[in-house]
Every structure is written in structure tokens, then in C-alpha cells.
């Protein structure tokens, strides 16, 4: 198998006396969707914050494309090509799609914003993801639906040429049709060669979209499974701690 884009081994994180991550291993491959599941308090958010450089890990090894790296600040993570699409989206409603996608790294020419170039790149990025739900890239984000906003947030990470995109509960607040659209978008994102980690509580979504499923239970990675080799009941067993992992990943 290829070298994973990201490989965590023995990652530890504590908040005072509370050990939230107790030596976690995780891998994610280019072009594959890895689902990270686990009950509330299992350590999913802490793991993501560590990967994003927001709350650095206390100990453990992080390899990015095979090379050991440090993830101490969001800037370092971003420079490597790690992008997190947060649940609350982090878009500015008063700005339009182009302005949001380029926020913080606007294209300029002669010191002024080069709207034409940004508009074109935004359109092309959305098209490369086969987005059809957006009519105009100059729509204000306030006029977009939840699914469209999720689309913009994901497209933003693509525009940044991310190598690893972490999606935090991308379908949590969406209706049925919009969930389908976003899951299809996640697939296309992976097919474009990006490593995707998706956090979800919805196992139906997970089985639809993920190639691998990693289960966290009370700070331990209790199972790393290939989706095609497992089933809903097993995963629920791992999440709730009823079942313990014996096999190893292919």
C-alpha cells in the first residue's frame, strides 16, 4: 500500500489529570475517505484539533507523507496542506462565495484585489467538484442553504490545494437531499487525490462514503477497519465498547 498522507502513532494528549488521547494511531491515504467515529467524549475533536495544530499533541509521532513533522501551530498545519472544515463552517455571511473562498489569501494585482482572477478560480474549483447547486459565485453566503455553505467550505480547502482535508460533521445539520449532495462532494474530493478524514455520528453516511473506518473509544483507537470488511453492528459494538478489536487491517 502507498505511503499514507498522514500517519499518527502513539499520540497522547492530556488536559491536566484527564488523559483524552491515550496513544492513538491513525492513518489516512490519498484518494481515500477515512471515517473517524466514536461516541461523545471519545476524543475525536481533540484528535482533530491536534491535527489542525490548534491544540498540539503532548507526545507521539506524526508523519506527513512519510516524513516526521511537528504540528504546533495552525500555520504549520496549513503550510503542510492540512485543512479542517469545521462544523460551524467559519464563513462570513456578509461576503459572497468568491470572497469567502479567497479569504485571507486574496489575489491582488497592483495592490488592489484582482476580482476577475479570483472569480474564475472559484468557478473552476466548484466545477472541478461538479457542483451544480450554486448558481452564481457572487451570491452572498447569507443567501445559501446549509448544504451550499458546506459546499463552499469544502471548495475553499480544495482551492488551497490541501492534501489532507478533515471534515467535522459535514452533514450534521442537513436535510436528506443536501446530505446526499455533500456526501457525493466528499467522494469527488477524495477522487481528486486528497486524503479525507470525515467525522460523523451518522453511520449510514459513514458506510456510504468511507473507505476506512477508525473507531475511537475513550481515547484509544479500538479499531481501524476497511468498510467493505465490516458492518453496522460491528462498528456500533466498537463505538460502545461492547466489542473489542481482534483482526488487523489489511
Amino acid at each position: 500500500m502507498d505511503v499514507p498522507v498522514i500517519e499518527l502513532s502513539g499520540v497522547v494528549k492530556s488536559f491536566g489529570p484527564v488523559d483524552v488521547l491515550k496513544g492513538v494511531n491513525l492513518t489516512a491515504y490519498a484518494g481515500k475517505v477515512t471515517a473517524l467515529v466514536g461516541d461523545n467524549g471519545a476524543g475525536k475533536s481533540t484528535l482533530v484539533k491536534g491535527l489542525a495544530g490548534v491544540q498540539p499533541f503532548d507526545a507521539g509521532e506524526v508523519r506527513f507523507a512519510g516524513e516526521p513533522v511537528a504540528l504546533h501551530t495552525p500555520r504549520e498545519a496549513s503550510a503542510l496542506g492540512i485543512e479542517v472544515v469545521y462544523q460551524d463552517l467559519a464563513l462570513c455571511e456578509n461576503l459572497d462565495i468568491v470572497q469567502n473562498m479567497f479569504l485571507g489569501r486574496e489575489e491582488t494585482a497592483a495592490g488592489t484585489l484582482d476580482e476577475g482572477v479570483m472569480e474564475r478560480q472559484a468557478s473552476e474549483t466548484l466545477q472541478s467538484l461538479s457542483v451544480r447547486t450554486v448558481k452564481s459565485v457572487r451570491q452572498k453566503v447569507s443567501s445559501l442553504s446549509g448544504g451550499q455553505r458546506q459546499t463552499v467550505a469544502i471548495a475553499r480547502s480544495v482551492l488551497k490545494k490541501a492534501k489532507l482535508v478533515i471534515l467535522d460533521e459535514p452533514t450534521a445539520a442537513l436535510g436528506v437531499a443536501q446530505t446526499e449532495q455533500v456526501l457525493a462532494l466528499v467522494r469527488r474530493l477524495a477522487e481528486s487525490g486528497v486524503a479525507v478524514i470525515i467525522i460523523s455520528h451518522n453511520l449510514v453516511d459513514v458506510f456510504k462514503v468511507a473507505d476506512y473506518i477508525s473507531v475511537l473509544y475513550l481515547g484509544n483507537m479500538v479499531a481501524q477497519l476497511e468498510t467493505k470488511d465490516t458492518n453496522n453492528n460491528d462498528v456500533i459494538g466498537y463505538i460502545t465498547g461492547v466489542k473489542t478489536y481482534e483482526g488487523s487491517r489489511a
Binding site: P74, R75, L103, G104
Partner: peptide, 12 residues
Amino acid sequence: GGNTEAARRAGI
């Protein structure tokens, strides 16, 4: 002005 947190996460 629109979303301080989003601006911060965008590196502003």
C-alpha cells in the same frame, strides 16, 4: 465585522 471567528481561522 461579519464573522470574527471565520476571519481568525482564515489567518486574518
